[in-house]
Simulated assay, not measured.
Amino acid sequence: MELFIVDEHTEHYLALQAGGDSDRGLLTGVLGGAGGCASVGLTLMLAMQGIFDPIMLTLGICLFLVPFLWETLRPLPLPILFNRRTREVYFDHDGELFHTPWDGISAVANEFQLAGAQIGSMQSASLEIRVCKFKQPEKALMISLGAPFGKSLALQKSFWEYIRAYMNNGPYFDEHGNHSESDSFVKSQLAVRFKMSDSFKHTLAHIKQAKKEAGGKNYLGSSDVAKLILEPMLYPLDRIKEFTYSIAKHRSRNLWPSVVTERLKANGPTTRLVDLE
Score class of each variant (00 low, 15 high):
residue 61 I to E: 09
residue 97 L to I: 06
residue 39 S to Q: 10
residue 89 V to K: 03
residue 44 L to M: 14
residue 77 P to L: 00
residue 104 G to L: 06
residue 51 I to E: 12
residue 65 L to A: 15
residue 83 N to C: 11
residue 77 P to M: 01
residue 40 V to S: 11
residue 92 D to W: 09
residue 90 Y to D: 02
residue 63 L to S: 06
residue 102 W to G: 13
residue 91 F to C: 14
residue 87 R to D: 09
residue 64 F to D: 01
residue 95 G to C: 08
residue 39 S to V: 10
residue 73 L to M: 12
residue 93 H to R: 14
residue 88 E to F: 00
residue 52 F to M: 14
residue 90 Y to W: 06
residue 67 P to G: 04
residue 104 G to W: 04
residue 56 M to V: 15
residue 79 P to W: 02
residue 92 D to S: 15
residue 71 E to N: 07
residue 67 P to I: 04
residue 54 P to F: 09
residue 44 L to I: 13
residue 93 H to Y: 12
residue 97 L to K: 03
residue 39 S to P: 06
residue 59 L to M: 15
residue 82 F to H: 09
residue 44 L to K: 14
residue 49 Q to F: 11
residue 66 V to C: 09
residue 62 C to V: 15
residue 94 D to V: 05
residue 84 R to V: 01
residue 79 P to L: 00
residue 95 G to R: 12
residue 75 P to A: 00
residue 97 L to Y: 08
residue 74 R to E: 14
residue 63 L to W: 06
residue 104 G to A: 09
residue 86 T to N: 11
residue 46 L to E: 14
residue 92 D to T: 04
residue 65 L to G: 03
residue 100 T to A: 13
residue 46 L to M: 10
residue 71 E to I: 02
residue 97 L to W: 10
residue 84 R to D: 04
residue 91 F to S: 07
residue 100 T to L: 04
residue 69 L to S: 09
residue 101 P to A: 10
residue 97 L to C: 07
residue 99 H to E: 07
residue 95 G to M: 05
residue 87 R to M: 13
residue 62 C to H: 12
residue 68 F to W: 14
residue 51 I to C: 06
residue 81 L to H: 06
residue 73 L to I: 08
residue 105 I to F: 05
residue 56 M to P: 04
residue 98 F to G: 02
residue 102 W to P: 14
residue 69 L to I: 13
residue 73 L to P: 02
residue 103 D to E: 14
residue 80 I to D: 02
residue 101 P to Q: 06
residue 105 I to D: 04
residue 70 W to N: 15
residue 58 T to L: 10
residue 66 V to G: 04
residue 80 I to L: 11
residue 90 Y to G: 02
residue 74 R to G: 05
residue 65 L to I: 11
residue 104 G to P: 01
residue 72 T to A: 01
residue 88 E to G: 08
residue 84 R to N: 05
residue 86 T to A: 14
residue 66 V to L: 14
residue 70 W to T: 08
residue 46 L to R: 12
residue 46 L to P: 07
residue 79 P to I: 00
residue 90 Y to N: 02
residue 93 H to K: 15
residue 92 D to V: 03
residue 43 T to L: 07
residue 39 S to A: 15
residue 40 V to R: 11
residue 57 L to C: 08
residue 57 L to T: 11
residue 102 W to T: 11
residue 78 L to V: 01
residue 41 G to H: 15
residue 101 P to Y: 02
residue 48 M to F: 11
residue 57 L to A: 11
residue 76 L to G: 00
residue 39 S to H: 13
residue 39 S to Y: 05
residue 46 L to K: 08
residue 45 M to C: 07
residue 82 F to K: 07
residue 71 E to T: 04
residue 105 I to G: 03
residue 61 I to T: 08
residue 70 W to L: 13
residue 89 V to A: 03
residue 46 L to Y: 07
residue 68 F to G: 01
residue 62 C to W: 10
residue 55 I to T: 13
residue 75 P to R: 01
residue 41 G to K: 15
residue 66 V to R: 04
residue 59 L to V: 15
residue 75 P to Y: 00
residue 48 M to A: 13
residue 82 F to Y: 05
residue 70 W to Y: 10
residue 54 P to G: 12
residue 89 V to M: 03
residue 54 P to S: 15
residue 94 D to R: 15
residue 82 F to V: 06
residue 80 I to A: 01
residue 72 T to W: 01
residue 96 E to H: 12
residue 78 L to A: 04
residue 74 R to V: 11
residue 52 F to K: 06
